[in-house]
């Protein structure tokens, strides 16, 4: 167990979304390290270096599908970090695909910003307990 601040990897193309997510995570853990990729193509090939405590993946991305990224990631790497798929899609098939690809949770992005912050806090907090 190290005491270094937790790292969250976020795959998210929307700057505003990323800003809100950062806001919510920093509310929980102000010193948290947040690594962002705005598309699959600039996501790291390996999470060896980052060692994230939580991975947050959006589904609709400019050049790829977040779920496909998740499936590939779970197959090729032994990343044990928990994954939350965070999307605007209410489509039930996306949720079941995410869970079967190895996501720990599927969360729909609330429209209202306050609710959005609350949603991020509630799915992130279990994994970002300070000192955890």
């Amino acid at each position: 167990m190290n005491n270094s601040p937790p790292t969250v990897f976020v795959l998210e193309d929307s700057d505003l979304d990323f800003e809100l997510q950062t806001l919510a995570i920093r509310e929980l853990v102000p010193e948290a390290r947040i690594v962002r990729a705005s598309d699959c193509c600039n996501a790291p090939k390996s999470f060896e270096e980052i060692q994230p405590s939580l991975i947050v993946i959006d589904v609709d991305l400019p050049s790829c599908n977040g779920l496909a990224f998740l499936e590939k990631m779970r197959k090729s790497q032994s990343v044990s970090a928990p994954v939350v798929v965070f999307s605007t899609s209410t489509d039930a098939s996306n949720e079941s695909r995410a869970l079967s690809a190895g996501a720990d949770q599927y969360c729909v992005k609330p429209v209202a910003a306050a609710a959005y912050l609350q949603a991020v806090r509630s799915f992130a907090s279990p994994y970002l307990a300070v000192g955890g």
Partner: peptide, 9 residues
Amino acid sequence: RGLNQAIFL
């Protein structure tokens, strides 16, 4: 949604 988020921020 983006508009709402921007207003919030």
